Simulated scan of single mutants.
Amino acid sequence: MHNKSEQISELTQLNEDLENYFANTIIPQLFVDAQLTLRKFTPPAMKQFTLKNEYIGKPMEEIKENFRYPTIIENIKNVIATGKILEKEIQTIDMRWFQMNILPYIIRKENRTDGVIITFVDITSRIRDLKEQERMLAENELLLDTIAHDIKNPIHALGLTVQMIKKLTEGNMENFPFLMDSLEVSLLDMKKVVEDLVDSHWQRQRYQAAEELLDFQSILEDVRLTLSHQVLETGAVITHNINVPEITFVRRKLRSVLYNLLSNAIKYTPSERSPEINVCTEECNGYIVISVSDNGIGMSAEEQQLIFKKFQRLKTDTEGSGVGLYLVNTIVSSAGGKIEIESETGSGSVFRVYFKIDYEGDRKP
């Protein structure tokens, strides 16, 4: 009898924990059982997919149109049948992009899948950035092709003129002024091609990313999902303490800063222990400070002087090109910020990234 009471108490507590989790998470999530019935959803999911409380307990077949993604039921069935995580980028019929993760909900004592938990992260802005970068690369290639094409004629003329000058003799210099004029014309033509293309096309099409007011925790969740494979493989635990919830910055640049710092924290933790990473935000002396601390291998004072140099890697037995921290430093420095490091060999590291607060903008002290 006593054991039964304890079991009921334990189940009540677990249910309470689950209710609290679903009520407080900031990302859209669904819990669908093995009979394809919607059991729970988070408040962001209610907002994102226009869900109502009365939908709880209904078959997904009846409400699938809310998710505007035609194969969601087939995807759920596949995860329940295989017990394997499904991760994919999807586009809904309202033209928004999401990273959808479907995770099996496993009853471990019975070793069976009793449903799925589905997470949606809006990556529309990320996809837009990628498409813009693809467009920019395509335009760069077109620009180079155009330059190569348009500059052929003056280069060819220049080569012919040089050959003719070489054939001149001391007694046959009457054509020299004409040939020099031809050289000058060819050089001017080359200069005009480059200036016209670069000034009128390249500068006009140059990509400029705009700053916006960002929810820091949403960016962190986005990065965490991007690193989900590394987190799963290493057993990494990422915690956070968000004291400043919003920051005005370029979305893709802030994501890049966080991604590189978290990725390195996971990568440079000894294999015999799981990475433990904490991300904190606070305001300090006119800066928003993002701190990323880890329990990794740490660095000596000499190594700390090298890590922000391009192509510089402290360890050669890990993947990477040595560009990540160089990129982070470039992004932060260009925005008027700075980076500080606190680290000792074998004792982990703390990276503090300082973003200068613009008191003339939306954020006021």
Score class of each variant (00 low, 15 high):
Thr119Asn: 06
Gly115Val: 07
Leu142Trp: 09
Glu132Phe: 02
Ile117Trp: 00
Asp114Met: 15
Leu142Pro: 01
Glu132Ser: 06
Lys131Met: 09
Arg112Tyr: 12
Asn101Ser: 09
Glu141Trp: 08
Asn101Tyr: 05
Ile106Asn: 01
Lys109Cys: 07
Asn111Met: 07
Leu142Ser: 09
Arg128Asn: 05
Gly115Cys: 00
Tyr105Trp: 10
His149Leu: 15
His149Val: 09
Ile102Phe: 00
Glu134Thr: 08
Gly115His: 01
Ser125Trp: 02
Ile106Trp: 00
His149Asn: 13
Ala148Ser: 13
Asp129Phe: 09
Leu142Cys: 04
Phe120Leu: 00
Ala138His: 09
Arg108His: 12
Asp114Trp: 10
Asp114Tyr: 14
Glu110Leu: 14
Gln133Trp: 07
Arg135Gly: 11
Gln133Thr: 09
Asn111Leu: 07
Lys131Cys: 02
Glu141Phe: 11
Asn101Phe: 06
Ile123Thr: 02
Met136Phe: 12
Ile117Met: 06
Phe120Pro: 00
Glu132Asp: 07
Lys109Ile: 12
Lys109Ser: 15
Gly115Gln: 04
Leu137Pro: 04
Met136Asn: 12
Ala138Lys: 11
Arg135Lys: 15
Leu130Tyr: 11
Arg108Met: 10
Ile147Ala: 13
Glu132Lys: 08
Leu103Met: 10
Arg112Lys: 15
Glu141Gly: 04
Ile118Tyr: 00
Arg108Ile: 10
Leu144Tyr: 11
Thr119Ile: 09
Arg128Val: 01
Thr146Gln: 13
Ile102Ala: 03
Asn101Lys: 08
Arg126Tyr: 06
Ser125His: 06
Ile118Gly: 02
Arg112Ala: 14
Val116Gly: 01
Met136Gly: 05
His149Met: 13
Arg112Leu: 15
Val116Asp: 00
Leu103Asp: 09
Asp122Met: 00
Val121Leu: 14
Ser125Leu: 06
Thr146Arg: 08
Glu134Gln: 14
Glu141Tyr: 12
Asn111Glu: 12
His149Gly: 06
Arg135Thr: 11
Asp150Phe: 15
Glu134Cys: 05
Leu103Trp: 04
Asn101Met: 05
Thr119Glu: 10
Glu141Cys: 05
Val121Cys: 05
Leu103Ala: 11
Leu130Pro: 03
Glu141Ala: 13
Ile117Phe: 07
Arg135His: 11
Asp114Cys: 14
Glu134Tyr: 08
Val121Ser: 09
Arg108Gln: 11
Ile127Gly: 02
Glu139Cys: 05
Thr124Leu: 01
Ala148Cys: 04
Glu110Phe: 10
Leu137Val: 13
Leu142Gln: 10
Arg112Trp: 07
Thr119Lys: 04
Glu134Trp: 07
Thr113Met: 03
Ile147Leu: 15
Lys131Ser: 08
Ile118Leu: 04
Arg126Ile: 09
Lys131Ala: 05
Thr124Ser: 11
Gln133Met: 09
Asp145Gln: 10
Asp145Gly: 06
Asn140Arg: 14
Pro104Phe: 00
Ile118Lys: 03
Met136Asp: 10
Leu130Lys: 13
Ala138Ile: 06
Ile102Met: 00
Leu137Ala: 13
Leu130Ile: 13
Arg135Asp: 13
Glu139Trp: 10
